[in-house]
Amino acid sequence: MKGAIVVKVDRCQGCKTCELACAVEHAKSQRLESAIHETPPPASRVSVEQGDGFAVPLQCRQCEDAPCVAVCPTQALHRTDPELPVLIDHDQCVGCHACVLACPFGVIRMDRHARAIIKCDQCYERVERGELPACVEACPVRALEFKSLDQVAREKRGAYLLQIERATDGT
C-alpha cells in the first residue's frame, strides 16, 4: 500500500469536517452546495465516533489479510494490486452483507439510498494524482495524516528513543 490514513486521536475535535469532505469527494458534483441535492445522496466512508472523552474518525484499515475479501462470495471485494487499498466492484456485489458482518471494525456499511456496499477507498484516484485523501486534506487540525507504514514506524521509534533519553536523564 502507498500509505495508511493515520489518526492523531489527541488532536481530533470531533468537527466531522472529514465526513463532509468524504461525501463530497464521492459525489458527482464534487461541491458541497450541490452535492446535498444529488440522488442518491453521497455518503461518507468515514465516521467520527465518540469514545470515552475523545472523538475519533474511523475508516477501513485496509487489512492485509482482509476478512471482507475472504468472505465475499462473488469476489466483488478485492485487492489485485498490493499498492492499492481494498476496493469493491459494484457490478459483482450481490449485497449479501457478509462483509459488513465480517469486518472487525464496523467500517463497511450498506448505503441504503444507493443500495450499495460502501467503504473507504483511500481516495486512490486522488492518491494516484499525487493528492492526499479528501478527509486528510480537509482536517482543519491535522488530526488525519496519510503516510507510509515505514514512516509511521520510524516516527514511533523516534518517540520511543525520546522516552528512553528522558528516563535516563531523569527529566
Partner: peptide, 12 residues
C-alpha cells in the same frame, strides 16, 4: 441511480 464514484474499482 448509479453507484457513487470512487470506491467502485473495477477488477481487471
Amino acid at each position: 441511480a448509479q453507484p457513487a464514484r470512487g470506491c467502485a474499482g473495477k477488477r481487471s
